[in-house]
Design a protein around this nucleic acid. Structure first.
Length: 494
RNA sequence: GGCGGCGUAGCCAAGUGGUAAGGCAGAGGUCUGCAAAACCUUUAUUCAGCGGUUCAAAUCCGCUCGCCGCCUCCA
């Protein structure tokens, strides 16, 4: 049982061999804080959150670094629009990001550095690059000379000559080669600046990640992640800077998540077809969004829509309902959480469930070890749900052996839920919350519903089923579904 | 144009050489005054198409068609 990960650099799944046995260093490109995050950001962060959690679960001592890019053209532009300074904008959206990630239930990374706290490290790397002849100052700016680094473009598999020939790359007069990129930008009047050997200015976009990863993870480390759109130019440039400066391999495994699409098109700021995390969370609960994201492999594109979110909610609800049923069965009974495998003397579902429970963790790990295949792991969860339901249906009376088995199954869900970031709520509470959220959107008051239900109950008691059914149909038109049971009638929003 | 990826049931989606997980929807059943809900059962001889390699291919190779992404800031 060994972890295998798809490495963008090789284009293949490789066995994960940590740089330092038992440890794992991971750097993930965070956001540029100039606006609210959209669900594309949610995906990236959830995906790497699960990778982080799984690495820890698998026994690695993980150092997870996720940065804030808090100085950048867009932040400055926004600050100018609002007539404020870049710091105000950056701090506002850092806070917004933290709130969003908190609501999405993300584990805190080991460190969350800000680019502006690492100007010293940035300048030091640039100085090294200049001294080694990999970079040159030009009129207040400093550029990386791509021709001095022969392995440039090894991550994206592009060809330097062809890219230079591309008409879309404009030749800036300050650059020697059109493909050269800025390490340091001289500040224009009114822009924030830091002092440097090349005059007042600010860092280019790519260099900060090199500086911060080096600071917290060293010159060489295990994982570097981000969205697929960062492969070129961002990660390509990080490799060039870091390897040229340090003379050693920068990152061992490059991980890139796929996009969130809307109608099969990439969702992005530039296309304007995006939903912010906040918008989506007004309509769906955070675990539903997480569940939806984890239901596909992290490298595949996923299509976001209300329908797929509804389906995700139904699916997650199925698991929660099962967990609620287990809770109910276990309620009152003080079943010992016994990890001893038991020979199960009950009906067939008991044997199957017992078998499933014993294989559960190894199958979960098998899925996650295969390039973090969360979709497959979710499949295992559903298979188990079905067996639990069957088991419960077959065994109305649960003896000690049965309760112990259910208790162990519940433990497995909690354990793997901890890795996937799911099942943080008590099942009953989650189910209730979904119900009231839906009820809040129905165009009929809860009092009115209750009143109609009691009218119907009276009619039914008098065997006036016609009248009872009329009321039921009336409520159904309003989207209210009635559920009759021996204990009485309850309702839910359809 | 260059590079990369994708095409699996009505929809979503796992599966990278050994005979198609799972979810949603649908159908049948249990339950019910009848329903609903819930639960159970069931749903692809077949993986875009055509060739090839192999004892064996959704999985490897080639070609064709279709879709998408990156090449400019972007998770």
């Amino acid at each position: 049982m060994a972890l295998r990960v798809y490495n963008t650099l090789s284009g293949e799944k490789e066995s994960f061999v940590p740089l330092v046995p038992g440890k794992a260093g991971m750097y993930v490109c965070g956001v540029t804080v100039y606006d609210y995050c959209h669900i594309g950001h949610a995906r990236a962060n959830i995906v790497f959150d699960v990778i982080y959690r799984y690495l820890k679960y698998a026994g690695f001592e993980v150092t997870y670094v996720r940065n804030y890019t808090d100085i950048d053209d867009k932040i400055i532009k926004r600050a100018n629009q609002e007539g404020t300074d870049y710091r105000t904008i950056a701090d506002r959206y850092i806070r917004a990001f933290d709130e969003d990630m908190d609501r999405l239930g993300l584990a805190k990374p080991t460190v969350e550095p800000k680019a502006t706290d690492h100007i010293g490290g940035i300048v030091a790397i640039i100085e090294t690059l200049v001294a080694k002849g990999h970079a040159y100052a030009s009129d207040g700016d400093v550029y990386f000379a791509v021709e001095t680094y022969p392995e440039y473009l090894k991550l994206s598999g592009r060809n330097l000559e062809e890219m230079q020939a591309g008409a879309r790359v404009e030749i800036g007069e300050k650059k020697r080669n059109p493909m050269d990129f800025a390490l340091w930008k001289g500040s224009k009047p009114g822009e924030p600046w830091w002092a440097s050997p090349w005059g007042n200015g600010r860092p280019g976009w790519h260099i900060e990640c090199s500086a911060m990863s080096m600071e917290f993870l060293g010159k060489s480390f295990d994982f570097h992640g981000g969205g697929k759109d960062l492969i070129f130019p961002h990660h390509e440039n990080e490799i060039a800077q870091s390897e040229a400066a340090n003379g050693c391999r920068f990152v061992r495994y490059w991980l890139h998540n796929g996009f969130v699409n809307i109608n099969a098109e990439k969702m992005s700021k530039s296309l304007g077809n995006f939903f912010t995390i906040r918008e989506v969370l007004q309509k769906f609960d955070p675990e539903t969004l997480r569940f939806f994201i984890l239901s596909a492999h992290y490298r595949s594109p996923i299509d976001f829509s209300d329908q797929s979110m509804d389906e995700a909610q139904t699916g997650l609800g199925r698991i929660y309902s099962c967990l609620a049923a287990i809770d109910e069965a276990l309620d009152g009974a003080s079943a010992p959480n016994d990890d001893e495998p038991t020979l199960f003397p009950l009906a067939s579902a008991g044997h199957e469930l017992d078998e499933k429970e014993r294989m559960f963790i190894s199958r979960f790990c098998e899925a996650m070890d295969d390039d973090f295949n969360s979709a497959q792991a979710l499949g295992l969860l559903f298979e188990t749900v079905r067996l639990v339901n069957r088991f419960l249906a077959e065994n109305k009376v649960l003896d000690d052996v049965a309760l112990r088995l259910l208790s162990r199954v519940r433990g497995r869900f909690k354990e793997t839920g901890g890795v996937l970031g799911l099942f943080n709520s008590s099942p009953a509470a989650w189910l209730d919350a979904i119900k009231s959220a839906k009820a809040g959107r129905a165009d009929i008051s809860q009092d009115e519903i209750e009143r109609l239900i009691s009218l119907r109950s009276e009619a039914r008691l008098a065997k006036n089923f016609k009248r009872g059914d009329e009321i039921r149909d009336l409520l159904l038109e309003k989207g209210i579904q009635l559920l009759d049971s021996a204990e009485g009638t309850i309702w839910k929003v359809k």
